[in-house]
Lab assay of single mutants.
Amino acid sequence: MLDDRARMEAAKKEKVEQILAEFQLQEEDLKKVMRRMQKEMDRGLRLETHEEASVKMLPTYVRSTPEGSEVGDFLSLDLGGTNFRVMLVKVGEGEEGQWSVKTKHQMYSIPEDAMTGTAEMLFDYISECISDFLDKHQMKHKKLPLGFTFSFPVRHEDIDKGILLNWTKGFKASGAEGNNVVGLLRDAIKRRGDFEMDVVAMVNDTVATMISCYYEDHQCEVGMIVGTGCNACYMEEMQNVELVEGDEGRMCVNTEWGAFGDSGELDEFLLEYDRLVDESSANPGQQLYEKLIGGKYMGELVRLVLLRLVDENLLFHGEASEQLRTRGAFETRFVSQVESDTGDRKQIYNILSTLGLRPSTTDCDIVRRACESVSTRAAHMCSAGLAGVINRMRESRSEDVMRITVGVDGSVYKLHPSFKERFHASVRRLTPSCEITFIESEEGSGRGAALVSAVACKKACMLGQ
């Protein structure tokens, strides 16, 4: 009897593995994704193909990295998701002549009506938060230079001027797309009239992360975010950046690689679950690469896999709870928690219980395998993109072996128990001629924006502006 049951459990697990095998990517698959990513990057950089390229390769006008001589107080704003952060950054000489960066910050959550109302409502709310922060720190009387981390696709015309191309991540505030974001912020500050600010720089969160990590390690020339969304930036040779005049030196390019796949480059790798996630998203047909990796989508992918296993009578005796059938019910943090389970399955059992399920031991094991399959594919897909960037940098610099540091931020990278190990191992397999160091950014977005502002202020002083 026991043997029969054991055989049935083994057969069930084997069927589960057959279904989950769809998520496995072979090294040849990853090399294919990497080569296609490089081709799209090239198209994004070139003037004649930029418009139709899915990977936009947006110039950021960040050319210099901090040298350690900029000092002063800077205000930093960070808008990239449902939370908005205001930070005071003091850049100065530390002990023994070292450079020191001290920060104080406060988080504000953005109400739904500000995210989806008008641009005026959104930026009025942001300036209200700045006003509140300055009151708390008794700094209303000071006109501070301000660095703005704005983590949406922007076409820069200068370091302090950028046109919002399109909202992502659930934002829909009308009247912002096609307009200068810094102008919208300046107008809102003017409307309030109770404080003055000098907006000197606007950067993407990947750029802010790279600059913040450069402060720790001067070989950091790539910034990457794996959180709600997924994106990367890197220092490109100016001669390859056709959208900006000049051939000397390097400029940081914001790849906006989340949109890779929007022209069909990933079609052969998309599964039924991916198509369902895409169809029910706020932007169907867009940001397809990001939807395979980002935390906004990972939990939902797992939920759809679990429903398939229920329908195949391989999980929960073929019956799903009402909660499990509800879109968004299986949160991405559950994926991390399930994979963090120590082996007694308590954590998995508790999560499934909150979803109205009474799982068996085998159910718990199957749910864990589903989570591992989805998150491992995410790590491997992400590795193909980064390997594409790094191999490109090595080739354009004609280096036999390139040493490089990548600064990384984002909740999936930082909080998932195995993502970074799987990701690092896969990147290294795909970049055999590179020695890569990964560092995690601390308060990256805010500190990085302030350091970019410090560079901009120093330049302005040198130019006598």
Rank of each mutant, 00 (worst) to 15 (best):
L2K: 13
L2S: 11
E9I: 09
A10M: 10
K15H: 14
I19K: 10
L20N: 12
L20V: 14
Q26F: 11
E28S: 10
E28W: 05
E48G: 08
E51I: 09
V55E: 01
K56T: 03
L58E: 01
P66C: 12
E67M: 11
G72R: 05
D73H: 15
F74D: 11
F74G: 06
L75I: 14
L75A: 15
S76E: 03
L77F: 05
G80M: 00
G81D: 07
F84M: 14
R85E: 02
V89I: 05
G92H: 05
G92T: 03
G94R: 11
E95T: 09
T103I: 02
Y108V: 00
S109L: 03
S109N: 08
S109D: 04
I110D: 00
I110E: 02
E112T: 11
E112F: 07
A114C: 09
T118G: 04
A119R: 00
A119E: 05
M121A: 12
M121G: 10
Y125R: 05
S127T: 02
I130T: 00
K143H: 02
S151I: 01
S151G: 02
S151C: 00
P153A: 05
H156K: 00
I163S: 02
L164W: 00
L165N: 03
N166L: 02
W167D: 01
K169N: 07
K169I: 01
S174M: 02
E177V: 15
G183A: 09
L185D: 00
R186S: 03
R186H: 01
R186K: 15
R186G: 07
A188N: 00
K190F: 09
K190S: 14
K190V: 11
K190N: 14
D194L: 10
F195H: 09
V200Y: 01
I211Y: 15
S212H: 06
C213R: 06
Y214K: 09
Y214D: 15
H218D: 15
Q219A: 14
E221Q: 15
V222M: 14
G223Y: 02
I225N: 00
T228V: 00
N231I: 00
N231F: 01
E236R: 02
E237Y: 10
M238N: 13
M238V: 12
L243S: 13
D247L: 10
M251F: 05
V253G: 02
W257T: 02
F260M: 12
S263Q: 15
D267H: 07
F269G: 05
L270N: 04
Y273R: 04
V277P: 03
D278P: 04
D278S: 11
E279G: 14
Y289L: 01
K291H: 00
M298D: 00
R303K: 04
V305E: 06
V305Y: 09
D311M: 04
E312S: 14
L314W: 10
L315V: 11
F316W: 14
R327E: 15
R327N: 15
R327Y: 14
G328A: 10
T332K: 07
R333L: 14
F334Y: 07
F334W: 14
V338W: 05
E339L: 14
D341N: 10
I351K: 13
L352P: 01
L352T: 13
L357H: 05
R358A: 13
P359A: 15
V367Y: 05
R368L: 09
C371D: 01
S375Q: 05
T376M: 12
T376N: 06
A378Q: 08
A378L: 03
H380E: 12
H380P: 03
A384V: 01
V389K: 01
I390A: 07
M393A: 06
E399S: 10
I404T: 10
G407H: 00
G407E: 00
D409R: 03
D409E: 14
V412Q: 04
L415K: 05
P417E: 07
S418L: 14
S418Q: 13
E421W: 12
R422G: 12
S426I: 06
R429E: 09
I439V: 07
I439S: 09
S445T: 00
S445A: 03
G446L: 15
G448S: 03
A449C: 05
L451S: 01
V452I: 12
V452F: 11
K458D: 15
K459V: 02
C461W: 13
Q465D: 12
